[in-house]
């Protein structure tokens, strides 16, 4: 279990760059993200599959997924 927890990814959101367009929220296949006010926030990190679609489709250089 401890090992699995360690393997959770780290999602970095650059709040100053996020324009809350919701592309990452809508295209995330596992609903990891949500819009909180004017920025994106992580809702369910455990569901993250590290597919990086959020990073690939973010127009604002505002989100990155690290191991």
């Amino acid at each position: 279990m401890a090992e699995a927890v360690k393997q959770l990814p780290r999602i970095v959101i650059h709040e100053k760059l996020c324009k809350a367009c919701s592309i990452c929220v809508d295209f995330c296949p596992t609903n990891v993200l949500e819009l909180k006010g004017s920025v994106v926030a992580v809702r369910n990190l455990e569901a993250c599959t590290r597919c990086q679609l959020c990073d690939l489709r973010c127009p604002d250089f505002a989100i990155q997924v690290f191991d």
Binding site: A4, V5, Q7, L8, P9, T30, E46, A47, C48, T49, R50, C51, Q52, D55, F61, Q64, V65, F66, D67
Partner: peptide, 20 residues
């Protein structure tokens, strides 16, 4: 989910700052 994630070995996210 952790197992699935482990299978999908994540490379380091691309460093756009290198070119910005």
């Amino acid at each position: 989910s952790a197992t699935t994630a482990a299978k999908k070995k994540l490379s380091v996210p691309f460093d756009y700052d290198k070119y910005l």
